[in-house]
Simulated assay, not measured.
Amino acid sequence: MATADILTPTSFPVAPDHMPSTFNENDNKSKPSTNGTKGSAQFDAQKHLQFAPPSKTYSMKELGYADNAGVSPIGVSEPFPLFSPEAIIQMRKEVLSDNVWTHYQFSSNLAQCQLRGFAPEYAPFVYDAWRSPEVLKIVSDIAGIDLVPAMDWEIGHINISVPGQDEKSQAVALSDENDKPIVDWHTDSYPFVCVTMLSDCTNMVGGETALRKGDGSIAKVRGPQMGCAVVLQGRYIEHQALRALGTTERISMVTSFRPRSPALPDDTVLTTVRAISDLSELYFQFSEYRLEMLEERIRIQLKEIRDRKRARRSFNTKAMKKFLLEQEKFLAHMNREMVQDEMVTKGFTDDSHLISEELKGRSRKRSCTDSE
């Protein structure tokens, strides 16, 4: 998934027959409250941002990774205030609306309830917030690289967990097992994510994000409070969300980012999002921005060879062949990620997104156990 804050169901959920899946409007027990907020609002950075810089950011090097790992030296931030209470209320109103639940709810073996792809149509406040220059600057400054949303489909992805009565009654019994994850180890599909908490975490115990460092040891980053966020270079760092107790709901919003510059690498994969997306929309948006990157790269290269010609310099065959090889790899990667629709198992993500052989082995062992 695109986040370290996905909640794993206690049993393997049945994948929906089609995408998107349908939400039963009469099943109010599974739908969190929107706090009864009415009316609409437009995002205003002056009014709706409550930003304060994180107390610390951790570099990839501090996490035990090579200096050239990822697209930025920054690995993860401590939680930091981002949105005002009024902004969070409006976001909750939009993302928990009946239209979103009806048309954009997804389920998978990684998360029982997710809302995806709804922002442009049903959440204008959410969409404008993550597209605003002010928010983009905040996220980019913390990440140490100029970022843009990966694509519209990945703006405001929502992960939801609402404990059932059985889970509540077992809370005391689970209190000694806080280190058990609510989502297993994974990497994200996109270079960076910004995870924002939409729930009141006042009584929450646990809920940290565990990061697997370069040497295999584990580091923990505390979970954000309502309106606060964490920036993580999750494409390159294996991570998991640890169990949280003492809360009636846990709703997090995840927006994925990629480098703005077309000259920088784009290591986006669709492994963890393919099975929980409208493939037609996902593949269109993925193709659109990747082809725009290629178009801009070609323009830059064309200008380079024209400038050399005007300067009466010889043609740089070696440089051109290097450029062409890089674009061949770029297109081949793009082609691999767009798996034929009929080959995609809806609601199921395999372990190909994992990095370490140890975690891949654990995942395969669990898969074998589940299938028995």
Results as ranks from 00 to 15, higher is better:
D44R: 06
C113R: 15
G64F: 00
P124C: 05
V95I: 15
V71N: 14
Q50K: 12
F125M: 11
F80P: 00
W101N: 15
S140R: 04
G70R: 09
S77H: 00
A129M: 13
S77Y: 01
D98I: 10
G39R: 14
H48P: 15
A111G: 09
Q90R: 08
Q50H: 10
D128V: 01
V95F: 14
S77V: 02
P73T: 09
E86W: 07
A129W: 10
P54Q: 08
Y127T: 13
N109K: 07
S40C: 10
D128F: 03
L115W: 04
W130M: 10
F43Y: 05
A129F: 11
K56W: 05
M91S: 04
Y65K: 10
R131K: 14
G75N: 07
P81I: 00
L136I: 13
G39A: 13
E78C: 07
K61R: 15
L110D: 11
Q50F: 06
Q50M: 09
R131C: 09
F83D: 00
Q90T: 13
A119L: 02
D128H: 00
E62L: 10
V76E: 00
D67Q: 11
Y65P: 09
P73C: 09
F106K: 01
N109R: 06
H48A: 14
M60Y: 04
A69T: 15
M91D: 04
K38D: 14
F80Y: 01
Q50P: 06
L115D: 03
S55R: 07
D44Y: 02
A52E: 10
K137I: 06
S132I: 01
L63C: 14
G70T: 07
E78G: 07
I88R: 10
G75I: 05
S108E: 04
V76M: 01
R92N: 15
F106W: 03
I74Y: 01
Q90S: 11
M60L: 09
K137F: 04
Y58D: 03
V100P: 11
K93F: 03
P81C: 04
E78L: 07
I88N: 12
H48N: 15
Q42S: 11
F125N: 11
K38S: 15
P120W: 05
I89R: 10
K38C: 13
D141G: 07
C113T: 15
V126H: 02
K56G: 05
G70N: 08
Y58G: 05
D44V: 02
Q50V: 05
L49C: 03
E134R: 02
A41Y: 07
V126G: 00
F80D: 03
Y104M: 05
V100H: 08
A119T: 02
S77R: 01
A111H: 08
A111K: 05
E94F: 05
Y58K: 06
Y122R: 03
P120K: 08
T57C: 14
N68G: 12
Y104N: 11
S40R: 13
P81F: 01
L49M: 02
A123D: 13
D141S: 08
A69F: 12
L49R: 02
P133T: 03
Q112H: 14
G75T: 08
S59H: 09
L115H: 01
Y65T: 08
F80C: 00
L96K: 09
I88C: 14
